[in-house]
Amino acid sequence: MHEYLDGEISPEHEQILQDHLAICSDCKQDLHELEKTIALVQSMSHIKASDDFTLKVMQNLPREKKRVGIKR
């Protein structure tokens, strides 16, 4: 089942899985729940860094140390 969800299942294994799912409702339910879980995690909205993020990074870079480093 995890091979299937990782997108790495071989055709033979997929056939075995499909045959099993056709007769086993517990596994079918598990797979459904796992697929739903993945979809839920992927549905999390994308969050963005603050507008002044880059400015703050640039202000906090250690200038002195870098100058020494560049000479080498």
């Binding site: 994308h46 603050s50 880059t54 990074v57 870098k66 560049i70």
Partner: peptide, 21 residues
């Protein structure tokens, strides 16, 4: 690496959202 401090800002711009997330 050549000492252009400001070029790093462009790198931050590219990745800031992904790293913050």
């Amino acid at each position: 690496l050549k000492g252009d401090h400001n070029a790093f800002g462009e790198i931050v711009e590219v990745y800031k959202d992904r790293i913050y997330q």
